[in-house]
């Protein structure tokens, strides 16, 4: 323990900083990549919460009525007007992708390379579907409904700015995740992790589950509120 050492024996200045930080002390009993991914996700939590808090603030402070998301995101399918249906389908797709990802992690530790790769590719495919549906949603809102970051015909002007900022940043995370998962899936298939273990699949999985987690909050706070 550091407090038992003689402080005078430790180097001072910049050398001291390096000595202290490189001391052979491990706090987290997990692979370093996993600890670092968790810390990255923690920082991402702060970013997304800041966006959602900003959204909450403009929504509570505007005196103009907020557009009703249930109506804004409704679709007419086969003559039926169904509220929020696209968002519901997107939610189920993202949850399914989380499910296949969890299974991929499991098969990775069993060293079943084919199943791991296929499940990861399925996850990436669900992710790509999600982004595709989001692109459809954005197009509909911009072209048909006339929603802009500075205003919209339905109500409070801040609606567009919040919507594009929050869902855009989330969609970017999904897109990056699709590339990330495809890369890891390819490396699993190639057998890159046979010698150093399959923790990397679990780490990639953490990122993907986080993307799903953020959507849970966006779904509840932006679309259902």
């Amino acid at each position: 323990m550091s407090h038992e050492m003689n402080a005078a024996a430790l180097p001072a200045g910049v050398t001291g900083v390096v000595t202290d930080w490189s001391g052979d002390k491990q706090a987290f009993q997990v692979p370093w990549g996993k600890a670092m991914m968790w810390i990255f996700l923690l920082s991402d939590t702060f970013i997304f919460t800041s966006f959602l808090t900003g959204y909450m603030h403009v929504r509570t402070s505007t005196t103009v009525p907020w557009p009703n998301p249930s109506e804004v995101f409704a679709l007419t399918i086969a003559g039926h007007h169904i509220p929020l249906i696209l968002i519901a389908i997107m939610t189920f797709i993202l949850i399914s992708s989380s499910g296949t990802m969890a299974l991929a992690v499991n098969y990775g530790y069993r060293r079943d390379r084919t199943k791991t790769m296929l499940l990861m590719l399925a996850t990436a495919a669900f992710g790509a579907m999600f982004v595709g549906m989001q692109a459809f949603e954005w197009t509909k809102l911009i072209v048909e409904e006339g929603v802009r970051p500075w205003g919209n015909p339905m109500g409070a002007a801040q609606f567009g700015a919040c919507f594009f900022m929050i869902t855009g940043f989330h969609g970017m995370h999904v897109s990056v995740g699709v590339i990330y998962l495809s890369t890891v899936a390819f490396k699993v298939y190639r057998g890159d992790y046979e010698s150093r273990g399959y923790e990397i699949v679990e780490i990639a999985g953490l990122y993907w589950h986080f993307v799903d987690l953020v959507w849970v909050f966006i779904f509840a706070l932006f679309y259902l509120w």
Partner: peptide, 20 residues
Amino acid sequence: PPICLLVLIGLMNIEGEYTT
């Protein structure tokens, strides 16, 4: 650490109501 965020949310809620 995310508990800090609850403070931010609380403060911004008060601020938002004041602005309204």
